[in-house]
Design a protein around this nucleic acid. Structure first.
Lengths: 213, 213
DNA sequence: CGAGGAGTTATTCGATTGTATAACAGGCAG
DNA sequence: CTGCCTGTTATACAATCGAATAACTCCTCG
């Protein structure tokens, strides 16, 4: 019986392949069903590779969590950055990015929830969550402040932070429920609803976010 | 070697004991670590009992999920019902109930997230989630409408529903992030922030929710 | 008080898991 | 073209899992 033919990949490529295979397995079968054998199978390699590149299954999964969080915030901040217009337009794009594909995805929400469920009891997950949360909050604060300034609203640090916390909560909640109940909503409802709600939360004139750009 | 002395419980009591033991195990060790043996150990019985009362481990876990969802919505709606004042006060209590113990709990959020992570890929979990979501949304709508009426605001069905979706998202998001990052916030911050944000979302005069009752 | 049955325990089994180790082979240095 | 390093495969192993079965005991009912 001959050995399986295989391809040699760069360390980065192989690691990324394994991480993405891990995410697929966790989404479809849960953390309990994401076995080393299944991950390897999904990636088209043999189980030994997981250990070779990540040392242990737990380390493999930690890397997958960090990878997911990075994907989510990078996508949103990138979309905001590309809106090279007024502050309104940047905030708008950031918000919309979280209510549309690829971030609005049942698979991504499932993964996020699965990991978040472990944050309380596993220190490494808590670290990844905390850093991701802080980064997201800072991005949001930085986007909110110039908008408040443009409209002549109070924009002290405490106010910005408070708005960011509320807005972040609203984004998270709509993102989760919107993805899981995507069948119930039209595709345009969620972005529209978030923009509308954000204007109210920040005290902006109606349609400043909805109409910008 | 003598057999372990044991106590005979009513079916309801034993099932509840097992369900709560299951939730403890899932919270602490995740779905993958909630083994029949560990659950039985947590409940102070032997593994066979799980099968005897629930048929299989999966059925056991489904019951635990439904139990958790029921706990959360019952607590919030009960607190709202007990505020026998104006509509403002009832909505206020409903909101506050979700930002304070026992609902605001790292353990409960961890459990909720763990289960939600499976909603996409397991039909039974999807059913439990969907029913819970609809019930929560209806409760919220029913609480919002009279408040809008009292303040002379538009209160057609579509408007109420839209407000309920946004408010539900805000509650969920703050609930999750607030519980997981409870160390970062003072105990009074979250309820206060949610009430304030809810007033803005619904277009109510400032302090109508914060000051009622 | 003393059977009978349902609730509970004890024990076992095949399957699957994460990990360890040795054998193999692809592709770059010389 | 040819070693040789290391990415990769193949195989094995102890531990643990969910489930099944049989034995036992608490409690109810007559």
């Amino acid at each position: 019986m001959s050995r399986k033919a295989f391809q040699r990949l760069s360390q980065d490529d192989r690691r990324r392949d394994l991480i993405e295979a891990t995410l697929v397995c966790i989404a479809q079968h849960g953390l309990h069903g994401a076995t080393v054998r299944r991950i390897a199978d999904q990636a088209g390699v043999t189980p030994g590779l997981v250990r070779h590149h990540f040392g242990s299954k737990e380390e493999m999964i930690r890397n997958a969590y960090a990878y997911l969080v990075g994907q989510l915030t990078t996508e949103a901040s990138e979309r905001a950055r590309q809106a090279r217009g007024a502050a309104d337009a940047q905030l708008r794009q950031f918000l919309v990015a979280n209510m549309t594909a690829p971030n609005l995805s049942e698979e991504k929400v499932s993964l996020w929830a699965t990991f978040v469920g472990r944050v309380r009891y596993e220190a490494d997950f808590a670290t990844i969550h905390r850093e991701g949360y802080r980064e997201f909050l800072h991005l949001l604060e930085a986007l909110i402040e110039p908008v408040l300034i443009d409209h002549g609203l109070p924009h002290d640090t405490a106010t910005c932070r408070r708005h960011a916390i509320a807005l972040n909560g609203l984004i998270d909640g709509l993102w989760v429920e919107g993805s899981l109940n995507s069948g119930l909503y039209g595709q345009a409802l969620l972005p529209d609803l978030l923009l509308d709600a954000s204007e109210r939360l920040l005290g902006l004139p109606a349609n400043t976010l909805s109409r910008s750009h």
